[in-house]
Amino acid sequence: MAGETPLIRVSNLCVNLPDMTRKPLFGRAPLLAILHDLTFDIPAGSVLGVVGQSGSGKSTLARAMLRLIEPSSGQITFDGQDIAHFDEAALKPFRRKAQMIFQDPMSSLNPRHRVERIVATPLVINGQNDARARAAEALDLVGLSRSFLTRYPHELSGGQRQRVGIARAIAMRPQFILADEIVSGLDVSSQAQVLNLLERLVRELKLTLAFISHDLSVIRRLCTHVLVLRSGRIVEHATVEDVFGNPQAAYTRELMDAIPLPDPDQPGWKA
């Protein structure tokens, strides 16, 4: 690991969001600190798993890293450039290199656009002239036949929709993809298929991936590094072997005890 230059370096990242439940009748809502002073690296070519229970700030971290929201303070260095406080115009080159796959594939695909348009639009915006051909290519890569190009999202199953979401992300040939809970809405067999697909794509396209999940068994299978978040703070950050072999934080062990075991007679099963 030593000597690798990190593709992304997050340092002292803080995100505060307005707390609308405590908004006074007049004036601004008080700010609620969601992420406290996060510092971590994502080395190029690695797969970082981000775990934590709901409300731990996983999705806020995702949205800040892709600059859907502006961090309150701190730096996000992508490929040597601090993008934390860029405006939309300055972010343009970054938008080409970093993509996201969303949790809910129904809401992340525009219900009024056909699959071809959904996958090709980001390419068109970024000035690719062979957008349609590359959209079709991306569908091949995720294992959907070209007959899907003319379908609308509501005509697809959950697993197929998530594949379209993946196709849209990889069509841009980004360096970095952030996958936010992308299998939590799928049934077990679709989950396995989508994970296999993602594993293969990371290998073939040499992607750097951040994989957000609350499911440690999925993280263990896919990731090289793990970041454990709790209430917006980093509890543990190490390689997957270290975290699973020798968890340092009590909270990590707690999470691991919560993994359901396949065999009730196996040691470690608690009734």
Binding site: R63, L66, L68, E88, L91, K92, R95, R96, A98, Q99, M100, F102, Q103, D104, S107, S108, L109, N110, T121, P122, I125, N126, R168, M172
Partner: peptide, 20 residues
Amino acid sequence: MDYVASATIAGQGRASILWR
């Protein structure tokens, strides 16, 4: 909806997101 977030990540401008 996430498709709007997705369009933002793709670098689509605000007028284009609103219209398309």
